[in-house]
Simulated assay, not measured.
Amino acid sequence: MNILVINSGSSSIKFQLIEMPSENVICKGIVEQIGAENARLSYKSAHSEVKKTDGFATHKEGLQSVVDVLLDREKGVIQQVSDIHIVGHRVVHGGNSFSSTTEINADVKAKIAQYASLAPLHNPHNLQGILLAEHLFPDATQVAVFDTAFHQTIPLVAQKYAIPNTLFSEHEIQVYGFHGTSHKYVSEKAMEYLHLDTSKIISIHLGNGCSMTAIVNGKSIDHSLGFTPSTGLIMGSRSGDIDHSIIFYMVNTLGYSLADVENLLNKESGMLGLTGFSDLRDIQAGVEKGNTDCILAMEMNAYRIKKYIGSYIAAMNGLDAIVFTAGIGENSSLLRKMVCTNLETFGIIIDPSKNVESSQELRAIHADASQVKILVIPTNEELEIAKQAYQLLQ
């Protein structure tokens, strides 16, 4: 069974074609910088590789380019669109409506649209990817895997905010949690690698969006993102935790509109607001050059992560392993070092030489004396989506 997995983001479309149940990746790629002049498609299969810079102006053009390369007579991997049996979609926000993987119908699409206001950088593009895939792959079953589903196990003590109960009961204002597909995948890999039947794990997903999850025996019990994917850690352009009174001050005293504040906190803050750069590679280059803004931003980033590590150790009453994952978590040895330094009191000791080793595989980077295991596990949300979609339709 061929499953095409589409992860449609705000300016990108990641995709993998996976044969199930063998989990064989037939091809994979990404359309990046959609809407920009340097928009490009990268595609790789066992026998070919394609790089195109066609300046894809819209997601529709980007997804059409994916279909074109899949069907290409020389470098493609399918003969016709009906060779795709299932299209699996990552959807960021499913609220309380979806606690598991779901076959997409009109009601599901309406719910995804309803939650768009809670994930404005994600759900609209997730929905657009679904609508385009329905048009381009009319014979395929469309399946949604929700980032929020993994966090449905968070208990009320961590799920509720200290606001009037009616806002929870009538309007579902609560902690939902995100990046659930990634946290589920890497935590299960960690348990398997460490041969743990019972476990206390902190999963740290660091990309343009960042989050941490406290996971006990494979179940999410607390998470750094909340009602929307904007709280918690310092992110690429999102502020993370902030005193909410700052919003009132900006509106009432500084004259900002609410729309301006929302845009500032989601698109102009975080590492971008602190340094002028949104790409961590540029920020780390700034650190090497002695840029004081970049140095302080990295220190703030690591400090925020450390605070969550301490709180999650307390919440779980212990810790077996820390997992770093996603683009920054997997590739930034500098940030991993900064996070794990001076945590010896918790039994967390990083091995400097193991930490700087370059690898795309699961690896341990803790010192021999470390009581807590420190792992770097490449996330594979696309494979996790394919597995869940396959299991749903069996």
Rank of each mutant, 00 (worst) to 15 (best):
T345F: 13
T345H: 14
T345V: 09
T345Y: 10
F346Y: 08
F346R: 02
F346W: 07
F346D: 04
F346A: 03
F346Q: 06
G347N: 10
G347A: 11
G347L: 08
G347R: 11
G347W: 03
G347F: 07
I348A: 15
I349F: 05
I349W: 02
I350M: 12
I350Y: 01
I350K: 00
I350A: 04
D351F: 08
P352L: 12
P352S: 05
P352M: 10
P352F: 06
S353V: 13
S353I: 11
S353A: 15
S353G: 11
S353N: 13
S353H: 10
S353W: 10
K354S: 13
K354E: 14
K354H: 14
K354L: 13
N355P: 10
N355T: 14
N355Y: 10
E357D: 15
E357G: 15
E357L: 13
S358D: 12
S359G: 08
S359C: 11
S359K: 10
S359E: 11
Q360W: 07
Q360F: 10
Q360I: 08
Q360S: 10
Q360D: 05
Q360Y: 06
E361W: 11
E361N: 12
L362Y: 04
L362W: 00
L362Q: 12
L362M: 11
L362N: 02
L362A: 03
L362F: 03
R363M: 10
R363V: 06
R363F: 05
A364G: 14
A364W: 12
A364Q: 15
A364F: 14
I365R: 00
I365C: 00
I365S: 05
I365M: 07
H366N: 15
H366C: 13
H366A: 13
A367Y: 03
A367N: 10
A367H: 14
A367G: 13
A367D: 06
D368K: 10
D368A: 11
D368M: 09
A369K: 06
A369I: 09
S370R: 09
S370T: 08
S370H: 07
S370G: 08
Q371F: 12
Q371N: 15
Q371T: 15
V372I: 08
V372L: 09
V372Y: 05
V372F: 09
V372K: 07
V372N: 05
K373D: 02
K373H: 06
I374Q: 12
I374W: 06
I374Y: 03
I374E: 05
I374T: 09
L375E: 04
L375F: 14
L375M: 14
L375V: 13
V376H: 01
V376F: 08
V376A: 03
V376C: 04
V376D: 00
V376Q: 00
I377H: 00
I377K: 01
I377G: 03
P378Y: 13
P378A: 07
P378M: 08
P378D: 01
P378N: 08
T379R: 02
T379I: 02
T379N: 06
T379K: 01
T379G: 03
T379L: 02
N380Q: 05
N380P: 01
N380K: 00
N380L: 01
N380R: 00
E381W: 00
E381K: 06
E381M: 04
E381V: 01
E381Q: 02
E381T: 07
E381S: 01
E382K: 01
E382H: 00
E382F: 04
L383F: 01
L383V: 05
L383H: 02
E384G: 01
E384N: 11
